[in-house]
Design a protein around this nucleic acid. Structure first.
Lengths: 238, 238
DNA sequence: GTCTATACCACGATAGAC
DNA sequence: GTCTATCGTGGTATAGAC
């Protein structure tokens, strides 16, 4: 059997966008979400956008830079929304620290809104983003680092006030775990479909998902700092 | 500037393995870990293994099946070790349920051992595995589903006894979050290097990592079941 | 400036000689 | 079992038309 390369023929459904650049980026988002970055060829992409093959290199420089443009169009507003929510919470709290629950909500809600907005790619865009997290390509790593640095830093400062029993280093790790559970959950292909068998694909499910995720993450963040307990030795006695 | 394709030239360092098939799979593991699946060409791979280009297709059928062989060589023993630890814990506990902490340990310890064993690929192999989780290619999804189904199912039954306040559906979600935090953490490129700046790359770090991860996951699993609390509304008042 | 046609070179895969 | 030759497709670069 041949290899499964689905991005061969392209449906020429133009969104009637005026300029070439917009048509390219819209078609790219759609195809990257459906087939992934590597499996989407520029030839199928440009055919879907009804533009010439060379137009991508002219307007974006390379396939990689086109990918960055696709990501940043959604990602930057989402992280700005997160920072905006955080600043509002800090104003409302005055001198007191913002609660852990509210901080987690401020991180999750913009992702939830994006996931529910089909005009902005919906949850398929978050899947694409989640995959990008684990990509080995250096250009994707650096791009995401720069795009997330400000947002993560702001929230880390706020969590540090809400969780005074944690050192900055402990919190760094826990926020790492939080981002992991979030990006993995949200990028959930059916790889572990066994884990979500009971969940149909209704409209409301993204909200239910985050309502389940938030208590899990809050409890993990509030857990006592790791001391000299040796939980891992309990089972490794051989 | 040209695109960063590092997997061009190949270092011809043979491991002096006797047969062609072993040389291919050893070189493939090394290069897939270093550059990822897509970015590793069969031409550089076969050059590194000192075999002919067509040998991969002859011995494995395709590049994809070679990738599966690379994964399953490490993955199957690791999951068998997890199941072995689980069965030992269940024997020791007799009628009583195994504690949540011990179950998490039984899941993490085989991954930790693999991460510390440089002869088996070390933590770079876990990075490769973590990336495979989020891969959009159907053949990878199906492969991982089949390889994880038994292990996840066994542990889910055990967690259900340890956490009687959770429904099976709730637990399904939380195990999904657990696998997300684990695979994301373990596959951690320097994508969010900002999150691990304080961690040098010593030998002991993988153990420290899991000693930090385990309390986080246990606390999340033990969190009360989601009721009609509306945490997410706290901040979305507009 | 925008866009097009076309020419590279590397890729995975395969047929057939040895 | 192994090798060479070759095919179709991929991303990219550029000359030249509008």
């Amino acid at each position: 059997m041949p290899s499964p390369r689905p991005a061969r023929k392209a449906a020429p459904l133009d969104t009637a966008s005026p300029d070439t650049k917009s048509r390219i980026i819209d078609a790219a988002e759609h195809l990257f979400m459906e087939h992934g970055f590597e499996a989407t060829s520029l030839r199928s992409l440009t055919a879907a956008a009804s533009v010439n093959l060379a137009a991508v290199n002219y307007h974006f420089g390379s396939k990689e830079e086109l990918f960055q443009s696709v990501l940043t169009r959604r990602l930057d507003p989402m992280n700005q929304e997160r920072i905006g929510l955080l600043e509002r919470l800090e104003r409302e709290a005055g001198e007191k620290p913002v609660s852990c629950e509210k901080l987690i909500s401020a991180m999750l809600i913009p992702a939830l809104r994006l996931a529910r907005d089909e005009k902005r790619g919906g949850k398929n865009f978050l899947r694409l983003l989640g995959r990008a997290y684990a990509d080995p390509a250096p250009f994707i790593r650096h791009f995401l680092s720069e795009n997330y640095a400000e947002m993560i830093g702001r929230f880390k400062d706020a969590f540090l006030l809400a969780l005074p029993h944690l050192t900055r280093q402990e919190l760094t790790w826990r926020l790492h775990f939080v981002m992991g559970a979030l990006s993995y959950t949200v990028s959930g292909t059916d790889a572990l479909k066994l884990l979500q068998q009971a969940m149909p694909n209704d409209r409301e499910n993204d909200e239910l998902l985050i309502q389940r995720l938030a208590p899990f993450l809050v409890a993990g963040l509030k857990a006592p700092a790791v001391g000299d307990t040796k939980k891992l030795e309990l089972v490794s006695g051989d």
